[in-house]
Write a protein that binds this DNA or RNA. Structure first.
Lengths: 193, 193
DNA sequence: TTTTAATTGAAATGATCATTTCGAAACTAC
DNA sequence: GTAGTTTCGAAATGATCATTTCAATTAAAA
């Protein structure tokens, strides 16, 4: 029988993420987490403190995975136009791979408990700030390079893109027709040119 | 003490809606519903069957309220342009009045449990169908009246508007600056003209 | 080797979960 | 009036909830 073997924290987070993503915060029980992580109940509390604080770590883990994907794609983009397309491409992939209609963990979490848990709310606010700032930077560059128009400020376009991404991700939960979704993205991006 | 007084079903639904909206489906307990409705626990089961079937009625109740609001505004609109604006106006109102960041009950429900409860999923699908059909009709009229362009089909624009509404509603949970939101809507609608 | 600290399994905590039961109370229809 | 039906309060069901406790086990530090 296993003795004092220190577990792989990232693997545990990965498995916990899958459960929370599938069932939501309130829908996930500590027993679910014990089963999914094959970690001892006491070990979870020793290492993560509580269900809520474990969920916060899961959110960070999920967020950093998404950020990693985005950075990985942005680095191969040569201009603002490619960058914006690359970001939307990530969400298309996400949607088409999401066969069981889980949606985006962060968006789900925002709609489920941002109004109930201050710690979650502040995580979400920070996450949104980071995202809109990134979008604003890209748009700003695109405008300086005359790739995007200047009918609106970079900040206004960033909010528009941020909102559109959330709409796309919510729409994609049920509507999975790739052609429709790609056309939707084309329409979303038209305003920039 | 009250005796055999038959309760007002709509009032009960209204109060149940408020609880579910605030706490979500999994976050709402039967005790919460008993407290909110001041109905007897047995009476709830007698009249609504179960928590899930009560929630389904709550969804219909909420939905018909939204539909009522939309119809009430559409009837005073003289053309497709006014109609689309009127719809977005409803969501602006919704957002600005939503001080406790509850979001839209139907969108919340979609992200919380559409992947867990088939009955909920089919409700959501029907709801989306109705919404996109309505939008498609309006866009179609607008295109026939030459108010909207014909760069895209009415169906494509309907999906775009549907997605944009969801994005707006999600964005508005935390971002409540009216000027920003109105500018966002203007940007969303530009594509139609 | 002994001490220290961490990890484990397993059980217990007490609260809360959705749902059911049941006899008493009270309205409606006869 | 009475019979039938519905609503009521209140308690009980048994399961599950998040969290804690604790002695036994084991690895690393002394």
């Amino acid at each position: 029988m296993p003795k004092t073997e220190t577990f792989d924290r990232n693997q545990v987070l990965q498995r916990a993420t899958e459960v929370f993503h599938l069932k939501g915060y309130n829908g996930t029980s500590m027993q679910d987490l014990v089963d999914a992580t094959t970690l001892n109940r006491s070990s979870i509390y020793n290492s993560f403190g509580s269900k809520l604080s474990m969920f916060l770590e899961v959110l960070s883990y999920y967020q950093s995975n998404v950020s990693g994907k985005i950075d990985g794609k942005l680095i191969h983009s040569h201009n603002a136009s490619d960058m914006v397309s690359a970001i939307f491409e990530i969400y298309i992939d996400d949607i088409l791979r999401d066969e069981d209609k889980k949606g985006c963990l962060i968006i789900n979490c925002k709609s489920e408990i941002t109004n109930q848990e201050p710690l979650i709310n502040s995580f979400i606010e920070k996450s949104q700030d980071r995202m809109t700032t990134m979008l604003e930077d890209i748009v700003c560059n695109g405008q300086m390079e005359k790739i995007f128009n200047q009918n609106q400020t970079a900040s206004q376009y960033a909010l528009y893109l941020f909102s559109s991404i959330q709409g796309l991700r919510m729409t994609g939960i049920i509507h999975k027709n790739e052609e429709d979704l790609r056309n939707l993205i084309q329409n979303i991006l038209k305003i920039l040119y």
